[in-house]
């Protein structure tokens, strides 16, 4: 439990690490749109190259980068299987009498889907998790969504809740460890037995954990009151976010990339999505 890593921020010094987190959120959204713009071989090739470029620019080791793809392995396999076997087209590759026929179109579709998902995950994890700390992400979201305050959506409060949650993750995980050890010392067993028995063994951990979390919450609320907290109104900030020229350049580049994809889509080459 020690050194539990929440989020996957990877400290390094790259263009993305230095970028304004708001710009990174915008870039992530633009990139997601771009992945859905792609329609044909050329645009997907461009997308793949751009994703590789992002990986290189982010200076995150490939080994760590690939870790972000592990959870989606199943989805990748599953969608490609569906695409391969369920697509009907003009060019059949397997003999007539096969129960599940494979068509050339199916293979293309599967390839495109996989590329799309992989690029999506890679780009969002580069922009939002590997190069941005959760706290600056919360901060950036608050600033980006601040226009919503006008329609009475409590943006600041949500951001504050997120920051406090992040602040307390290490504290509570340490506490969980302490309680677990205390229960182990009393003979509790969390590692053997049926699933049900193991789930039941967790109750003596969860109850004290909740009690202590509530006590902490009350104390923290008092401490915040003592420090004049009264919501987001009239609050200033020590570290104010500043867009820099490079942030705008990056956004413009990505918009340009999207337009480029749109042109590439119009070129007929090998195959395009229907």
């Amino acid at each position: 439990m020690k050194g539990i890593s929440f989020g996957q921020y990877y400290p390094a010094s790259s263009v993305f690490h230095r970028m304004d987190p708001r710009a990174k959120i915008i870039l992530a959204v633009l990139y997601i749109v771009s992945t859905f713009l792609c329609k044909n071989v050329l645009s997907f090739a461009a997308l793949t190259i751009s994703a590789l470029l992002l990986v290189i620019l982010s200076r995150i080791p490939l080994r760590i980068m690939l870790r972000s793809l592990r959870p989606i392995l199943f989805i990748v396999v599953f969608t490609s299987a569906i695409n391969i076997f369920a697509t009907r087209g003009a060019h059949r590759l397997t003999p007539e009498h096969w129960w599940l026929a494979i068509y050339e179109e199916g293979l293309w579709n599967a390839l495109f889907m996989v590329l799309r998902i992989v690029c999506l995950i890679l780009s969002t994890s580069i922009f939002l998790t590997y190069t941005t700390t959760p706290v600056s992400l919360a901060n950036a979201l608050e600033r980006l969504l601040s226009p919503l305050k006008r329609i009475k959506i409590p943006v600041h409060d949500f951001a504050m809740m997120m920051t406090i949650a992040l602040r307390f993750i290490p504290t509570l995980s340490e506490e969980t460890e302490k309680i677990m050890n205390a229960q182990k010392a009393r003979g509790a067993n969390f590692t053997t037995g049926s699933l049900f028995a193991r789930a039941k063994a967790l109750i003596p951990i969860l109850v004290p954990l909740f009690v202590s979390a509530f006590n902490r919450a009350f104390e923290l609320a008092t401490a915040m009151e003592c420090r004049c907290y009264h919501g987001g109104e009239g609050r200033t900030q020590l570290n104010v976010l500043h867009y820099r020229a490079s942030d705008f350049v990056a956004i413009l580049l990505l918009v340009g990339f999207g337009v480029g994809l749109w042109f590439l889509n119009r070129v007929d080459f090998l195959y395009r999505l229907g």
Partner: peptide, 29 residues
């Protein structure tokens, strides 16, 4: 200042926590 330091620090960076009070007071940057 209370007994348990863990339950009175709000921010995830020391300097931002120190700034929390004056931020609430609206002290300019």
């Amino acid at each position: 200042v209370f007994q348990n330091p863990d339950n009175q620090l709000v921010a995830t960076v020391v300097e931002e926590d120190v700034a929390f009070g004056p931020e609430n007071l609206g002290v300019p940057q």
